[in-house]
Design a binder for these strands. Structure first.
Lengths: 284, 284
DNA sequence: TCGGATTACGTGCACCGTAATGATC
DNA sequence: GATCATTACGGTGCACGTAATCCGA
């Protein structure tokens, strides 16, 4: 029987050039490697090495065998990777989102509907990145701003969110009923870093504005509450983090400031996720 | 390290359905197989079997792993086959021919030009079969009646052969200087079986003729020498087996009765065989 | 003489088989 | 109780490391 340690030995000898170097790389003695290669030749019934000179070297057939050995070992690694990945996928539900708010909504739903699975999520800044991750099966589902173009997708909207700004009462715009991005362009905003698509959206809509990006959600709130710098909120975020005392919340009325989140998966996987889709809230 | 005996075990369990049956098929004890599968699961860090019920059965991930295991084992078999085939090809020169006469010519040339190789040859009835064998790398070269169509071939003519008939002196055609197939159609011929393309050619040109096919060359000669039945010879065969006493040799004058043999190989292999081509005789 | 492969030799581990035990129908 | 799988136990073969040997530059 040709066991894999023989293939490892052969591949490493081709890589290292000599038995001695390969043996060191494999943490075995050169004697063991020498015997292993003799065994491999015996198993195959074919000489793989030129043993004429002082240095024993791979024959052309030995190189051919080493090529195949590497292919077999790659297949074996592929097996281990595929099996471990399948096992992981069995235990965890992984999804990405273009914004943090949908995660707050989904977290309790997912842990109720998929009690046997742990849930992993991450933020991205564009639908496009998440669509790619869906296609590569790197995630089970994604929260997008719109259904992706083309067939092969399954999903539906489940949450709407609208952006607004938090202003000090003395701010010249604090008395307005609503604002546009254009009104605020040039202000300096305190903003939390991980807010998904909102970040590039705000940069695009307010190119003259400077954003003081904070690494944590807490720090962002602290600075907004204890300074006169404007910050952001949304209708959804206001439900979990009340508007700070001494701040005025003014909603934005640009169409881009209100978005609808869609939970999306590949159509093939729709069956696995039907319980999740059924548990999503309806949009009023 | 995942050794191949673990993969064999897994694949056989999927095939057989139970550990017991698989263990019998693999000629090991069920205990050994059970331990082996535990080791495989330990190596992968993933459970491959449902051990809840009385019968331990493959989980979906176990089936996935078994699929990969079979693929790895197939790659391993492929490696052994490729290496053994490369080694064989290194030691033997194998070719096919549409007729026996070229083999008589080539045998001494090949053993002189390729002293390190043993030579294997076989007969086929058509160029087409041999071209396919060349394409499949089943043979190193082929003796054909013509260069194959298309690019990718290398070769040249090296021998010409003409067919004739051996008649008893009393035969009504024995005094002719030459004959056509049409003259002989309807006669009963004694003929050796393994004569390559000559057999279908003669059947095609003399559809009314009955051929008494002999299994050995010696038997054919004996019957021809000791009967009044007509037989065949060629100018080339006459050099090694003289015309029997009491027989008249009459050449055929149809164009199909004279052929030119070409030694052909795939163009990629032309370099390996240049010494052989150089040693071939020129056609007068 | 030196770097590197092979051979010799003793050791220990890992896999084996038998047999007892466990688990499920 | 029958049928499988797992666990326990003792044995053994095989791959290992050390060290001696061999072989070319």
């Amino acid at each position: 029987m040709i066991e894999t340690y023989l293939l490892h030995g052969l591949a490493e000898i081709e890589r290292s050039g000599t038995f001695t170097a390969a043996a060191n790389a494999l943490f075995v003695s050169q004697a063991a490697l020498s015997r292993a290669m003799q065994k491999l030749e015996r198993e195959l019934g074919v000489a793989l090495f030129d043993r004429s000179g002082g240095r024993t070297t791979l024959s052309p057939i030995g190189h051919l065998a080493a090529d195949h050995a590497r292919a077999v070992l790659a297949a074996l690694d592929g097996m281990a990777a595929a099996v471990r990945e399948a096992d992981r996928a069995r235990r965890v539900f992984r999804y990405g989102s273009v914004a943090p708010a949908p995660v707050w909504t989904l977290a309790p739903i997912l842990s109720r509907v998929l009690p046997a699975k742990s849930v992993e999520s991450h933020l991205r800044e564009t639908d496009k990145e998440l669509v790619r991750e869906l296609q590569e099966d790197a995630i089970d589902a994604a929260v997008l701003l719109a259904m992706p173009p083309g067939d092969g997708w399954s999903g539906r909207p489940f949450l709407r969110e609208s952006l607004g700004v938090l202003l000090p009462p003395v701010h010249k715009l604090a008395r307005r009923k609503s604002l546009r991005f254009a009104d605020l362009d040039g202000e300096t905003f305190v903003v939390f870093g991980d807010i998904g698509f909102w970040m590039p959206l705000c940069r695009a809509k307010m190119p003259k504005t400077e954003f003081l990006v904070q690494g944590t959600y807490g720090a962002t709130g602290q600075i907004v509450a204890n300074s006169t710098l404007p910050g952001f909120y949304t209708d959804v975020s206001a439900l979990r983090t009340p508007i700070p005392e001494g701040r005025v919340a003014v909603p934005m009325r640009d169409v881009e400031a209100t978005v609808t989140y869609h939970l999306v998966c590949r159509a093939e996987r729709a069956g696995d996720l039907s319980a999740v889709f059924d548990a999503l809230p309806e949009i009023p």
